[in-house]
Design a protein around this nucleic acid. Structure first.
Ligand SMILES: [Zn+2]
Ligand SMILES: [Zn+2]
Ligand SMILES: [Zn+2]
Ligand SMILES: [Zn+2]
Lengths: 147, 147
DNA sequence: CTTGAACTGAGAACGATTGTCAAAACCCGT
DNA sequence: ACGGGTTTTGACAATCGTTCTCAGTTCAAG
C-alpha cells in the first residue's frame, strides 16, 4: 500500500535484456519459439539468459505487445505483429506469415457465444497451409525471405 | 508388398485396451487430457498403460474418430464429437463444450487462403468463455454436469 | 498348434517450460 | 554521489506432458 509512483507505468523496468528481445523480434518476420529467439540473441552477441527470454516473451504477450500461438506440436511461438485484433495465415514450410482480418468471423463468434449464453469469450483462429513459393519450389530448401 | 489381408481394415487390431479408451471417451462430455482419461480408466477398473492411452488417443485423432485441441497451456485434450467438420465453444470453468458450425467461416478461410496463394490449408478455431451456469453460480464449485 | 506381426506397459528418456534464489541492476529520496 | 528497498537477472534444478525403448503378450492366419 506504499504506492508512491510518480509515473503511472505498468511497473516494468526498461532493461538491456528486454530491449534486446524486442529488437530481435522486430528483425524477424516469422513466428519463433523462445528457444529460437534465445539462439538468435546469442548469435547477435547479446547475452540474455533463457529464463529471461521466456519471462519477457510472456510479459509482452500478456501486454498484447506481441502475438503468441501454438504450433501443432504445442510449442509456443511469438511474433511482433501489427496492433489490433487479427489472425494468421502461416506457411508450414517456410513459416511465412500473413496477418488477416475477418469482421464476419468476429461477428459470428460473438453471435454463437451469445446464443449459448457464454460470456467473457475469446477465440483462437489460425490457418496453416503451404505458400505459393513453397508449393512451387518443391520445398527442397525452405526459404525464409525472398527479394 | 506381401499384403494378403482378407478384410481391408486400417491395419488396426481391436483390443481390450482400445475398446476401453473408446468407452471412456463415450461416457465423457468434456474435452479431457490423456492423463485424465487414464485416471478415469483406472477408476473404472480397466487396466491400461499410460503409453497405450497416449498412443490410442493419437491414432483416433489421426483417424478423425475423435477431436483434439490444445488448452491455453498447450496440453492436448480429446473428445468424442459428432462426425463432420465443426468447431467448439468451451467453458473455461466447467469444460462444458458446444459444437458449432460456421459455413461462412469456412468460406472465409478458403477465400483468404486462395487470395494469398496458400494451398493444402487447414484451420483451427476454438472459442473459450464462461457458460451461463458458471457465470451464474459464481464459479465457487465448478460443476461438470447438471440435470 | 506354430509363427510372425501387431500390441502392450513399465520405466527411462526427452524437451519445453517453470521455479529457485543469490547476485546484479535500477530507482528514488537524501 | 550514496544507500536502501525493489525489481530483474541467470545458472541451474525441477516439473510435467509426452515419447521412446524393448522385452513380454496377444492376435490371427495358415
Ligand atoms: Zn499477429
Ligand atoms: Zn478474431
Ligand atoms: Zn468436436
Ligand atoms: Zn472450420
Amino acid at each position: 500500500m506504499t504506492e508512491t509512483r510518480t509515473s503511472p507505468d505498468s511497473g516494468r523496468r526498461p532493461t538491456r535484456q528486454r530491449a534486446a528481445v524486442a529488437a530481435v523480434l522486430a528483425d524477424v518476420e516469422e513466428f519463433r519459439s523462445a528457444q529460437e529467439l534465445h539462439a538468435l540473441l546469442r548469435e547477435a552477441g547479446e547475452k540474455v539468459g533463457l529464463a529471461t527470454v521466456y519471462r519477457t516473451l510472456q510479459q509482452m504477450a500478456a501486454d498484447g505487445s506481441i502475438d503468441m500461438l501454438r504450433t501443432a506440436e504445442g510449442e509456443a511461438v511469438y511474433r511482433a505483429c501489427s496492433t489490433g485484433h487479427h489472425h494468421h495465415l502461416v506457411c508450414r514450410e517456410c513459416g511465412r506469415t500473413v496477418e488477416v482480418e475477418g469482421p464476419a468471423v468476429e461477428r459470428w463468434a460473438t453471435k454463437v457465444s451469445e446464443e449459448h449464453g457464454f460470456s467473457d469469450v475469446q477465440h483462437t483462429l489460425e490457418i496453416f497451409g503451404t505458400c505459393a513459393d513453397c508449393a512451387d519450389g518443391g520445398g527442397v530448401t525452405p526459404q525464409v525471405s525472398r527479394p
